[in-house]
Computed example of a mutant assay.
Amino acid sequence: MAWDPIEETELTPGYPVLKHMRQAWNSLKFLYGQIGTLAASGIPNGSFEVDSDGNGQPDNWTLNTYPGGSGSLVTDVPAHGATALKIVHPGGVGNGGGYYESDYCACSQVQKSVLSFIHWATAAGMHNMVQVRFFSKAKVFISTSVLYESSANPTTPTCFVTSFTPPANARYYKLDLVGGHSDTNVAGTAYFDGVGLAGIEALAARSTPITIASASIGGNAWADVGSANIQVPFCSIPVVLSLTASLSGSGTEFEDFQTAYQRFRVGTSYSNEVASPYPVLSNFLLPLQVGTQGLQTITVFMQLKAKNAGTAVGSVSDAAACCRINI
């Protein structure tokens, strides 16, 4: 459908208006499609919900196929909203699936963007990609940046988070969702959904309450006294875990010689430290070492130590672990 307004000169008193009613209806459908694609995420129709002309293809996206390839909207296996995008590689040397390219999206070289998307494939060995192409104010191509590329793709819906900074003079970009590149002879179907500039929200959605039971320790050496697991998606940019925990020492506000110490770790990455001789509730920020692909289960350890002959007591009670992107 296209915007085709009715001009006043087209209306003649006393003549049927059926043609103009159809024209108005088509224009309304066009406007509905445009409104449906205006997402706060900045990626037009990134959940592929709008197909205003009913042709099985998402508005604001253009399908480009490799030999033998095809692509369309699907409603039987969506991961975000009611519709997802699929690209089919039929198999065979030289054949492939294809790629969907977005409409132009505005950007600036002084503004970093965080992109999240959901991706999976029926055959993990397909060569799938997400890339961004940058253009000047006049929409002249500048360069390409690959945000995701794998031949070991997840076979269940998986959230990915990445980022990009436009190069000098870039004012627009297009996203390419590549499923089944023709350079790899692996038949299968690649799926994409929930594409948007919403990385922070994507991580927060994975945040869950965690509990670490109360534990105590004496001695002045750091020791693990409890742990909890949290799941976060693949993320190719730095993130930090924020959580709140309680701490108390065996001293008093006036006896700091029995101060208790508390911190958290994931692997060899450590949070900030808190020290107090009396009960205190503190916030901790912990850099995450996220894996290379898929939904990661990360173990967070609570560590305690005590000064002199004191005792340190710490716990995490139903704290909402919140992941933040460290841009």
Rank of each mutant, 00 (worst) to 15 (best):
P5E: 11
E8M: 14
E10D: 15
L11V: 15
H20T: 07
S41E: 04
I43D: 01
S47W: 02
F48Q: 01
E49K: 04
D53V: 04
N55H: 10
P58C: 08
N60D: 12
N64T: 15
T65L: 05
Y66L: 02
Y66C: 02
G68Q: 07
S72Y: 08
V74N: 11
D76S: 15
P78D: 08
H80F: 13
A82E: 14
A82K: 14
I87W: 02
H89V: 05
H89E: 04
G92L: 06
G98K: 09
C107T: 12
K112C: 02
V114T: 13
S116V: 00
F117A: 03
A124W: 06
A124V: 09
A124L: 09
N128T: 13
S136E: 10
K139P: 06
I142L: 15
I142C: 04
V146S: 12
S151L: 10
P154E: 08
T156W: 10
P157N: 07
C159P: 00
F160I: 11
A168N: 12
R171V: 03
Y172T: 09
D183C: 06
A187I: 10
D193I: 05
D193T: 07
A198I: 12
G199K: 01
I200S: 07
A204L: 08
T208P: 03
W222Q: 02
A223F: 11
I230Y: 03
V232Y: 08
S236H: 06
V239K: 00
S246G: 15
S246R: 10
L247H: 02
F254C: 03
E255K: 08
E255Y: 10
Y261E: 11
Q262K: 13
T268K: 05
S269T: 13
Y278R: 07
P279H: 07
V280C: 03
L285D: 03
T292L: 14
G294D: 05
L295T: 15
L295K: 07
V300C: 05
L304R: 00
K305G: 01
T311K: 03
G314P: 06
S315G: 00
A319L: 00
A320Q: 14
R324G: 07
